[in-house]
Design a protein around this nucleic acid. Structure first.
Lengths: 152, 152
DNA sequence: TCCTAATTAGGAACTATTATTATTTAAAAA
DNA sequence: TTTTTAAATAATAATAGTTCCTAATTAGGA
């Protein structure tokens, strides 16, 4: 799946601007890695990106791909899907509930909300597949991490 | 964090009923592993459960813990948090968007919905932490997996 | 109690990711 | 443009989480 060229140009421009402002080097490797993620409409993993980038830069290493990707996540150019960077966690609470996830420490906190339980599934989603459950995930900073931050 | 005893009893009863109906054996190991997840209010990982169960069953192996947990997920007694069972995936789409996740093949599909973008954060969530973004995740079966299923 | 297929323990193997180190390079300064 | 140097890279070793393999054990029906 490929993105429209205009949007890719916009993303590439933002990439250069962001790296310059952060004072990190714009390397050939980082450029090609970002171009690869940014032009994809699905959500590729590091291995897939590595294979594709290697067509242009045959000597690139997987480690470089990982370092570049996490750098871009830190700079706010990319996000990750799922819990990531963390091990699998199990939950015996099968009632409908929602999650608050701390973006600093990764802590996940359940909460209940009757309104969220009844969110209507948008029509266009029905074209993607048959919905079975709707869950809201709120990302933010938990109290403990906020206090730690203030103490600094 | 511990759950109230009544709720634990309810979960244990459901556990026995579900395993019997599925025709799988109710082993001492599976019982203790499930009791451990079911009595926890946070979301423990396999390693943590392993350490706790080992206090009662000193010879249990980590592999048994994993096998038991995934079995319970398959039987609908547990869920996992995050993408799990999958490697990290990266996304260059930083606009507000939401996800449809196929519970069969794991495919994640973006969609946009102005209503979802403006969901109000419930008051009680503010006690947990400072919210930064709200994202809706719809779980279901994608068209491709549905067709495959029908073809059977 | 006996029987047998299902399950387990223990350790090896596998897979995704990160660390180490010598070499190379981007970009600021001359 | 060339020089300089801290930052970044390639290659490979190491680590962490999870799964596989096999002989021994066990749940639960006969």
């Amino acid at each position: 799946m490929q993105i429209i060229p205009d949007e890719l140009d916009r993303r590439m421009a933002l990439f250069e601007k962001t790296l310059k402002e952060a004072g990190v080097k714009i390397t050939h490797q980082r450029l090609e890695i970002f171009r690869e993620v940014a032009s994809s409409l699905n959500h590729p993993d590091a291995e897939t990106l590595f294979r594709n980038v290697r067509k242009k830069l045959p000597t690139i290493s997987l480690d470089t791909v990982y370092r570049a990707l996490w750098l871009m996540v830190d700079l706010g150019l990319l996000t990750t899907l799922g819990a990531s960077r963390d091990r699998t966690r199990f939950d015996a609470n099968m009632e409908s509930h929602h999650h608050f996830v701390c973006s600093v420490c990764g802590m996940t906190h359940d909460f209940y909300d009757a309104g969220f339980d009844r969110l209507p599934v948008p029509e266009k989603v029905m074209e993607i597949g048959k919905a079975e459950s709707v869950q809201v995930r709120i990302k933010g900073i938990c109290m403990r991490c906020m206090r730690k931050k203030e103490a600094h």
